[in-house]
Every structure is written in C-alpha cells, then in structure tokens.
Design a protein around this nucleic acid. Structure first.
Lengths: 234, 234
DNA sequence: TAGATTGTTAATCGATTAACAATC
DNA sequence: TAGATTGTTAATCGATTAACAATC
C-alpha cells in the first residue's frame, strides 16, 4: 500500500519553480474584478459555473485556473468569495501596494499617473522622471516630477523596484538601461521598442501594435468578407 | 498521376475563413518594424535566421508566421524585404490608413491622440468625442473634440468604422453601446471593462490588468525566491 | 439521501519545434 | 557544384476541454 503525501500548491522542485501558465495568470484579474463585485453585493460563495457564465469562459477552465492560487473549493458549494479574493491577490502580489516610478512625463506618462484604477492592481505611483527642465519640479496628478538624473539615487533611497517606461521610442533603450542601473527589478514597457535587458530584469511589454494587429486583421477580413457577399449578390 | 493545383494563401473554404493563429498575428508588427529598419538601411533580402536572431525567436517560427501573409521566400536567398513589408501591411490592412475616432478626451484619450506612432500602424485619428462642455469645441493634438451626441451623425458622414474607447470604467458600456449605434465595426477598448457587445462588432481589449498581472506575479516570485536564498545562506 | 459542485485523469486541440528534402 | 535557406511533414509541447468519481 502506498501513502500519498498531500502536496497542494507544490510550485517548485529541485530544478526551480514551475511557472504558472501565462494565459491563466492573464485571466486572474478578470476573476478578481468579478469576485470583488460579488463581495460588495454580499455573496459568500461562488461557483465556477457562475464565474464562467459572467466572463464567457468554460467552468472547467475557471477551476483549472483557480487551482494555481492553491485554494480549494468546496464540492457542492463552490468557492469562498473572500478567500478567493485573498488567494488571487496574494498570488499576484497585489495584497500590498507596490511603489512604482514612471519614467517619462509626456502624454502617456502623465495619463498613467492620473489613472486611478492602478490602486485596484496593487500599484502606487510615487513619482515621475523626465529630462525636460520645464517639467522637473512640478507635480502631475499630485506626484512630483524629478529629473531623470535623480533616478538612481531615489530608487535606492525609496526602495522602489518597479519602473513604468513611457518615454519616446528613441529614448527608450537608454532610459531602460538607466532603470537597470538604478536597480529596478522590473520594467513595465509602454514603448513599442523591444528592449535588450540584462538577465534577471523582468520586462513586460504593453504591446499596442500587437493588439492593434489583431483588431486590424479582423477588421480587414470582415470588410473583405462583406465585399465578397456584395459581389455575390450583384 | 495527380495534378495538384497551387492554392497558396488558401484562407477560406465552404465553412468560412481559416483564422490565422492569434500569436502569429500578434508577432507580425515586430517583423514589420524590423523589416522597415532593414529597408531604410538598404537591405534587399533578409533570412528567417536573421529575423529570428534580432527578435529572439526561432527561425522556423518566423517562416511559419510569414506563411500566413501568402508570400514565399527564395531558398538559398531569403525573403524580399520590400515584398515582405507589403505583404504584412496588406494582411493587417495597414497599407491604407484607417480613420478612427477616440471616444473619451480625458487623460488617456488625449495621450492616445498625441501618440504619433499610430501612423506606422495605419491608424489616423480624425476626432475625439466627450461629454464635457469645456472640452467640446477645442482641439487636442490638432484634432477636434466633438460632443458625444454627434458621434452617430459624424461616424456615418465621415465613414469611420473604428472607435477607440478611452472613457472611465463607469461610462464604458454606455459609450460602447453608442459606438455600436453609430455603426462602428470595431472597438479598441482601453477601459478595464469587459464589454457586452452585439455579435458582429469586433472588440479588442488592451488589457493592462492582464499585462500587470504577468509582471506582478513574476516580481512576487522573484522576491520570494530571493528571500528563500537569503534564508538558506544565513 | 439527492443535488450540486469540485478536482482528477484522460482526450483533444492548437501552437511550436525538429528533421529534412527541395530549391535557388 | 557547393552552400544557404526555404517550405513541408511529422513530432513535441502546452493549454483547453471532456468525462466522471469524490465530496459536501
């Protein structure tokens, strides 16, 4: 007879941590948003079927996804809304706010500084950086703008590990290198530039071009299809 | 003996068009950007191996991806830079500029109106819409701001089919419904809201939360790992 | 107990990668 | 011809989905 040890949340072995599937991680914020809505409405539990129905997914996919948080549901009942919120927040590191710098105080940087939704994602913008003397010393959406030369100093002093890159394409790589020198561990890249970074620095790109490509291709196909139907009709 | 008809770019059959793999479509803009750089430098041909090396991909993946454009390379030589640019632009519908409206002239909408990179993606912002009387009648980055009530009228008159949604979360669904009423065929959704749209309207979401989730999870893991090493060392 | 819902195990699906013959 | 590189066919990999026993 064999005894099976229970190894729930067994997220690493000798060779290193087992990476969570990326599509799953990307869906977690949608779950979290829905769960928060349910929590406000006073719901105590929720089933994978209801989550799936609201988000247009399959119940089995919801259950598979939620497993990576390590939380178990109760057969016949569902998942505890509160426990699930906590588990997802913990998994994403959104249980405590993460301080972040915005590098580049132009149109996009300013807009991001003014985006109040970041609080829901555990993100706290503490300052912006720019090389424009006209901007340095001012405040944007209540956050101070410092000269880019002060990035290294202030990153160390304020223990900031995350930088949001929102400069022009031409300045992107140089600014990213400076962020690396400042000891930032992660760069959220809003520029269209494919950054070349030293290993160990986490880079996540908000790829507008990729997103627009999907939209454009579908639109081009839809218009082509419509023309095709037209021709067939006439 | 069987004669095989050549059916390159055979993208649809009786049951409808074969969808191009989404990951492939998302990588096309990166190829396009690199190819344009090569074109400026005067290169006539490029091999899948060089493209792969520059973008950190596998040569075979590059060749597979490029096949959906319908363009063939030349064995022993590579791909024509110019022909490949044209093929990708055509596939994405970026060969002719697409006019677009921005709905929401707040921080984000204004920033998007000022983003000059869109020209490279075949996108032409022609106007913004808002319900704030203080903004209506002004110009943002050279584009007129109209009252949201004029959306339906102007969309028809100007033959605009694409709308960029950049309003607040609370206004998102209502604005999206209006865009549908205005006959827009596609919505590029910059809000965190999961829109409920009638079938046939293309919606592509720029999912900041999903992107940040990937970053946060990696950052949380990295920090946890570091702590683990520390403990083991001490 | 009966009904609801979970988590596991296996099957399917789609994307990536490997091997290599075909071609310039 | 020899070297380089493509496109095809098959193998692998990872994510999604299906079936169902286990559990509340």
């Amino acid at each position: 007879m064999t005894v099976h040890m229970e190894l729930s949340h067994d997220n690493h072995d000798v060779t290193g941590p087992v990476r969570a599937p990326l599509p799953t991680v990307r869906r977690l914020p949608a779950y979290l948003g829905l769960l928060r809505k349910y929590a406000v409405e006073g719901a105590l539990t929720i089933s994978s079927a209801s989550i799936a129905a609201e988000l247009g997914l399959e119940p089995i996919q919801v259950r598979k996804d939620l497993q990576i948080t390590g939380l178990s549901g109760q057969p016949g009942v569902g998942f505890s809304v509160e426990a699930l919120i906590d588990a997802i927040e913990l998994f994403l590191g959104w249980d405590n706010a993460t301080d972040a710098f915005i590098v580049g105080a132009g149109n996009l940087g300013s807009a991001l500084a003014g985006y109040d939704g970041f609080a829901l994602y555990g993100l706290n913008i503490v300052a912006l950086f720019d090389n424009d003397p006209a901007k340095v010393g001012t405040e944007i959406h209540g956050r101070p703008v410092f000269h880019i030369d002060r990035l290294i100093d202030l990153a160390w002093r304020m223990h900031v590990h995350l930088g949001i890159l929102a400069v022009s394409s031409t300045a992107a790589q140089q600014a990213a290198d400076l962020m690396a020198d400042a000891g930032l561990q992660a760069v959220w890249n809003f520029t269209p530039v494919q950054l070349k970074m030293t290993d160990g620095i986490i880079v996540e790109k908000v790829d507008l071009a990729a997103s627009l490509a999907v939209l454009s291709n579908r639109l081009a196909t839809a218009i082509k299809d419509k023309r095709g139907v037209h021709n067939a009709d006439e």
